[in-house]
């Protein structure tokens, strides 16, 4: 499994996408919002938690179709499916690699971007924590969506349509937790962690079923 993770990270960096593309997209999403709603710092500070979370979500979405698509096209997935590693293990490795190349840099970049949006001082800690706990959920759900749409040519749009509704609970809780700041956000944090753990524990099996159906 380690070799899948390492190889996927290597591929992401080689193909010019990887960290930089995701981060550039995140920056652009956050940057165009003041252009749209105006540069009022009070307003920006009020909508900052939601914006940062939506930005994270969209940046995550950007690289989802690559998770299985390339391996599917060049026959690697077929060969992997006949290897001793179970399909659910492959899904876990893929999701982990996706998180390292997107979720992790997004979480780190959210702090300086939060400053651009005049995020409240107390909210930084919660922003970082919720993203650190919540972005693995995004990667695992995304991997599930990618597993379902892998056999579909030009499945990118459909992938977004399938995955975004699944992101709703994480987004709601995450953004709420950051905006509440000091007002007892621990309860929400616990719920985010619960969803995250559930996704990590169960979604790989759903991925395996979807991959097997696609490989038939």
């Amino acid at each position: 499994m380690w070799s899948i993770i390492l190889r996927d990270i290597k591929l992401a960096i080689r193909s010019g996408g990887g960290f930089s593309l995701t981060l550039a997209f995140f920056l652009i999403v956050i940057m165009i919002v003041p252009f749209g709603v105006g540069a009022n710092l009070d307003l920006l500070s009020r909508i900052a938690p939601g914006l940062l979370w939506i930005g994270a979500l969209l940046s995550c979405l950007l690289s989802l179709d690559r998770i299985f698509q390339l391996d599917w096209e060049d026959g690697t997935l077929e060969a992997l499916a006949t290897s001793p590693i179970p399909l659910s293990g492959i899904a876990i490795a893929k999701a982990t690699a996706h998180w390292i190349t997107t979720g992790l840099p997004i979480t780190l970049a959210s702090l300086p971007l939060g400053y651009l949006l005049n995020l409240n001082y107390e909210a930084y800690f919660w922003l970082f924590t919720t993203l650190a706990i919540g972005t693995p959920t995004l990667s695992f759900i995304g991997t599930f969506g990618a597993a379902i749409t892998v056999g579909i040519r030009r499945g990118g749009l459909l992938l977004s349509l399938l995955v975004l509704p699944l992101y709703i609970p994480t987004l709601m809780l995450g953004a709420q937790c950051v905006s509440k700041g000091t007002n007892n956000p621990l309860e929400l944090l616990a719920l985010i962690s619960a969803i995250s753990l559930m996704c990590i524990a169960l979604l790989p099996f759903a991925c395996a079923i979807a991959l097997r159906a696609n490989l038939k």
Binding site: W2, S3, I4, L6, R7, K10, L11, R14, S15, L70, E73, D74, G75, T76, E78, A79, L80, T82, S83, P84, I85
Partner: peptide
Amino acid sequence: AYSGHLDGVKSTLTVYENLQFWAGIY
């Protein structure tokens, strides 16, 4: 060991890296 119509070769990895990956899997 199954080999289908496609080789499962990653074009952006070197020959050695490709083989290293499969050696890691097996």
